[in-house]
Write a protein that binds this DNA or RNA. Structure first.
Lengths: 196, 196
DNA sequence: GTATCATTAGGACGATTGACCTAGATCCGG
DNA sequence: CCGGATCTAGGTCAATCGTCCTAATGATAC
């Protein structure tokens, strides 16, 4: 059953192209060229283009869950885990400066298109939001955990947008440092174990 | 010479549609329907679609300069003026929750399309950036004025992105309040005259 | 009133889009 | 070795895209 592999191949190529060029601007011919498959073949795996988008969003949701679970397991303190989230901006800085944040730009495009998958795309944000809120709760900020999560999410989105507009890596590093300081200031006690 | 009026009519309709639907997703037929003009008429005023985009960006640049000049004249202190900038998020909240920030989303789309006008679109950001930096300089923060300007710009972009993704007005108000507090904390002395 | 130029309407073009169809290739249990 | 199911390639479709062209209309000057 090589079909599953082919389907996966298509979805991953679409995932990359949707990020780099946008959903609407990516034609089947582009995905066909990227995968080396024929155009018509797509319609065996997906009836309409929206189904590919759906599959891409599903893939991203899965990968995001894995990413969050990885951070959850790799770090012992919530502060460390939140640092992992912030660190994404550094780790993905090259692509971010070219194409912005994959989540933010997809949501923005689908919102403008009034696309059905718009709400499903924002679930990607919700994953980060709820995970971050969980970490802030562990930090003893259960009362305003969601507020803090949204604040941090907001800052990462703003950084990605401006970093792409100005192609400015120094700006990313500067703001990331400020976000880390903001986090440390939130609960100085909880972060102490990191420095011992 | 009604040609100038017609041209202006086209550009303003395109400006709105490019914001609400995006550049690529807006076809000539859409602008024609919005203006009540015939498709072919466009090519008397603009040779190619990119020229319309160029005219739209020029229009936005002009309006932004007027906006900034208005704030400059209406308020006497830099703190008040910066509050005007932050207040945009409240004033335009309805459209922001539907379509995001006009500047940020346009820059993001053009960057993905590798469009020639991409750098020209980011000049819109530069206008705000330099104006804000000027205000921070007046606040006695000349040394890190640009850094502060970028920070504030970043926060407004993040707020717009998340506000659109979650359609959350309370989030906007909460973050705007935090931005105002951040500004007041920057130079408590300079803001005192506002409270007397 | 006529000649001239500016402006507009609307049709037609080639290219490309998403979508569909069918014939052939591949696989696999009997 | 076969026969049915699975999978793929490539052609075709109508619709729509940006672009172009021409004829009709409007206004202006003499």
């Amino acid at each position: 059953m090589a079909a599953a592999a082919t389907r996966q191949h298509i979805v991953e190529a679409a995932d990359r192209l949707f990020y780099e060029r946008g959903f609407e601007a990516t034609a089947f011919a582009d995905i066909a060229a990227a995968t080396g498959l024929s155009r018509g073949n797509f319609y065996y795996h997906f009836k309409v283009k929206n189904e590919i988008l759906d599959a891409v969003i599903t893939l991203r949701l899965e990968r995001t869950r894995l990413l969050l679970a990885g951070w959850q397991a790799a770090a012992e303190t919530p502060v460390e885990r939140i640092h992992s989230f912030i660190g994404m901006l550094i780790g993905n800085r090259a692509k971010i400066m070219l194409y912005g944040c994959p989540v933010g730009t997809l949501c923005a495009e689908l919102a403008k298109l009034d696309h059905i998958a718009s709400s499903r795309a924002s679930e990607l944000f919700t994953l980060f939001r709820e995970w971050l809120a969980g970490q802030f709760s562990l930090l003893g900020r259960a009362a305003d955990a969601d507020r803090l999560a949204m604040h941090l999410l907001m800052r990462s989105q703003g950084v990605a947008t401006l970093a792409a507009a100005f192609r400015d890596e120094a700006f990313i590093r500067r703001e990331v440092e400020q976000m880390n300081l903001w986090l440390e200031a939130l609960s100085p006690a909880a972060s102490l174990p990191l420095e011992t």
